[in-house]
């Protein structure tokens, strides 16, 4: 295991940020800490980096007890949401910072920084200052800076959170590819389930300072441990008092085994997908079908269809609020 967190608790005054959290991150993996804001994921990342001290519990990095170790001795690379670029230093000097601190020979620093700037496609920007870069470029610089010292683990706190949607999507793919090249154990924090599913091998879902579930993106989507994980990772609707995925609803024109009648309220075409708003037994629900299905059924507002959950698909009881 590259990172082991055991029974960590952290409070800020009365607020419990981490409540007995235990997580293991295998070497070489790319893991997402996913959850709503205030769920404790950034705090967990900062505890691993040594930027916060836990009230109790243990942190091990690469088999070494690190709970009381200061940040500068942990050998972690940390990337901040707002880049934390050293404004008075050029891109080159930013990336070289960790190596200069370690008093490496000038020639070695030059070689390593040049390689890293190529890796993050900033080789032509070495002499620029951070204020002359776009947000995406700054974040790539911050990543190169963190990688320069060859950290045991790379920690990214909402790395794409401050970027606009287009750059965000590009950088996601780019991070995934970078990890395939560099193989450093990587943990990133996000509140965007799509980002987590697209980039990570493994996802840790956190809410209210607790770990809700750990697993691969497919596991979490298909076998959510509870209704929170199910709702957070994908679309949900309710059928017969149970939480189901809208694309797991089967529609029929005539009654069939286990079906219930539903009135179509509205049909919305979203390209290939069609969203069908239904009224079932006095409750609103919706189904996601393909365009072909919608046309085959001639779905339109006012029609009555018969609905059931596709066999063997996940359904969780709705927690009484």
């Amino acid at each position: 295991m590259s990172i082991q967190v055991r029974n960590v608790r952290k409070t800020f005054g009365d607020f419990v940020a981490l409540d007995d959290v235990s997580v293991e991150i295998p070497s070489g993996s790319l893991t997402a800490l996913l959850g709503p804001s205030g769920g404790g994921k950034s705090t967990l990342l900062r505890v691993v980096a040594g930027l916060e001290q836990p009230d109790s519990g243990l942190v091990e990095i690469e088999g070494r007890e690190a709970t009381r170790l200061p940040a500068q001795e942990r050998g972690v690379g940390f990337v901040f949401q707002h880049y934390a670029a050293f404004k008075h230093l050029s891109v080159y000097r930013n990336v070289a910072f960790g190596l200069e601190i370690r008093k490496r020979p000038k020639a070695e620093i030059k070689k390593r920084v040049t390689e890293l700037l190529e890796l993050v496609h900033l080789e032509n920007f070495a002499d620029r200052y951070p204020s002359q870069l776009s947000g995406g470029q700054r974040q790539r610089m911050a990543l190169a800076r963190a990688l320069a010292v060859e950290p045991a683990v790379l920690l990214l706190d909402e790395p794409f959170g401050a970027l606009d949607a287009q750059v965000r999507k590009e950088l996601r793919v780019w991070l995934r590819n970078l990890h395939d090249q560099v193989h450093v154990t990587t943990v990133f924090v996000t509140h965007d389930q799509e980002e987590a599913m697209e980039v990570a091998d493994s996802i840790v879902v956190m809410a209210n300072g607790r770990v809700e579930q750990i697993g691969s993106p497919d596991d979490l989507y298909d076998q959510p441990a509870n209704d929170f994980v199910m709702s957070f990772l994908g679309p949900v609707t309710q059928l017969a008092g149970r939480l189901v995925r809208p694309h797991d609803l089967e529609l029929f024109t005539t009654p069939d085994v286990d079906t219930v009648p539903a009135e179509v309220q509205r049909v919305t075409r979203l390209g290939f997908e069609v969203k069908v708003d239904l009224r079932i037994d006095g409750r609103d629900a919706w189904a996601q079908v393909t365009r072909g299905t919608a046309e085959q059924f001639g779905l339109e507002a006012g029609r009555t269809v018969h609905v059931r959950r596709a066999p063997d698909r996940i359904a969780l009881p709705v927690r009484s609020a």
Binding site: G50, Q72, E73, F78, F80, F86, R102, A142, A146
Partner: peptide, 21 residues
């Protein structure tokens, strides 16, 4: 304090962080 925190994760002690950042 983010720049200072970044410097500390890069291995800078408190004096180095103060002087350089």
């Amino acid at each position: 304090d983010e720049q200072e925190q970044a410097a500390s994760t890069l291995g800078a002690g408190s004096w180095q962080t103060f002087r350089r950042i």
